[in-house]
Amino acid sequence: MSRIDYYFSTLSPFTYLAGTRLEDIAARHGAEITYKPLDIMQLFQRTGGKPVPERHPNRQTYRLMELQRIADIQDMPINLKPRHWPTNGAPSAFAIIAAAKAGGGDLGALVHGFCRACWVEEKDIAEDAVIAEQLEAAGFDRGLGGWAMVEGAETYARNLEDAVNAGVFGAPFYITDDDQRFWGQDRLDHLDWHLGR
C-alpha cells in the first residue's frame, strides 16, 4: 500500500478548499494517509515564507481574489475575513493527533470540519467547546482534545521538523512514499495522476 504524508494547517484556507478530495483520491488508489498538522507560521519562518499581513499588498489582494475564485469554482462557501482568524492552531492540531492515535472516526472529516468551522462558520477552533463539537461530529470521543496536550505538542513539533526535512514550505502539502511532492489543493489532480501511473 502506498502512503501519502499530508502536511497541513487547520488555519489554512487552502487546506479548507481541498475539502475531502485527498481522502477520495487515496481511497481510489488504495493509499494510506498520514496526517501531519503543523505550525504554518513556524514553517514560513523556517522556509522563507511570510505571514499574510507581511506580504506586499499586491499579493494580499491577489490571494483574496484567488480564494474567492476557487471557492466559487468548487461551489464551496467561504468567508474571506473570518472573525477568528488567525487564532491558535495548536489545540485543533493536538485534537487531530489524538484522534489519529485513538482511531474509530473519520480523520478527513475532522480536518475539514475544523477548517470549515474557521472559514465558514465563524467559530474559534482554539476553543474547547468547538474542538469537542468537531471531534464528535467526525465520530471521535469529545474528550480527546483535553487529555492529549503533552503528546500532541511533541508530535506537533516533530511534524514541523519532518516537514522542513522533507522539503515542505506551505500547506496543504502532499508527499508520496516515492518522494513526489505536491503543494496546494490545486495539485490534487496531479497527485491523483501520479498515483494512477
Score class of each variant (00 low, 15 high):
I4F: 05
A100I: 02
Q134M: 14
G167W: 01
I96D: 10
K36Y: 03
G89R: 10
M41R: 09
L43H: 07
R55D: 01
H112N: 14
W183P: 13
D189C: 00
M149A: 07
L188P: 14
G49R: 00
I78H: 15
A117M: 08
V130L: 08
I4K: 01
Q60T: 06
T87H: 09
M41V: 04
A117E: 12
H194M: 01
H84K: 07
L188D: 12
D141F: 00
R181P: 10
A132R: 15
E161M: 03
D5I: 01
M76W: 00
L144E: 09
A26R: 07
N88G: 08
L160Y: 03
I78W: 12
A100T: 10
L144K: 04
A137I: 06
L80Q: 13
A102R: 12
E66G: 08
T15I: 04
A129S: 15
M41D: 11
R21E: 13
P51A: 03
M65C: 05
W85F: 14
R116C: 06
L11V: 06
H190A: 09
R83P: 11
H190T: 03
A99D: 10
F182M: 06
F44M: 03
A163P: 15
R55P: 15
Q42A: 14
I33Q: 06
T10I: 05
N79A: 11
R142F: 06
D75N: 13
A93M: 10
I96N: 10
Y62W: 14
S12N: 06
Q60A: 04
Q42D: 14
E133H: 08
T47M: 00
D39F: 07
H112A: 11
A166V: 08
K50G: 00
P57L: 05
K101A: 13
G89N: 12
L110H: 10
L67K: 11
Q180P: 09
R63K: 14
V164P: 15
A31Q: 06
I78D: 13
A102E: 14
G152F: 00
E23Y: 01
I78P: 15
A126L: 07
L188E: 13
R63N: 11
G145R: 03
A31M: 03
Y16W: 09
F94G: 05
A163E: 07
S92D: 08
K101L: 04
M65P: 04
D75T: 05
G184S: 01
L11Q: 09
H29Q: 10
L38S: 09
A100R: 08
R181N: 07
Q185M: 07
L160F: 02
E161G: 05
S9P: 15
Q180C: 08
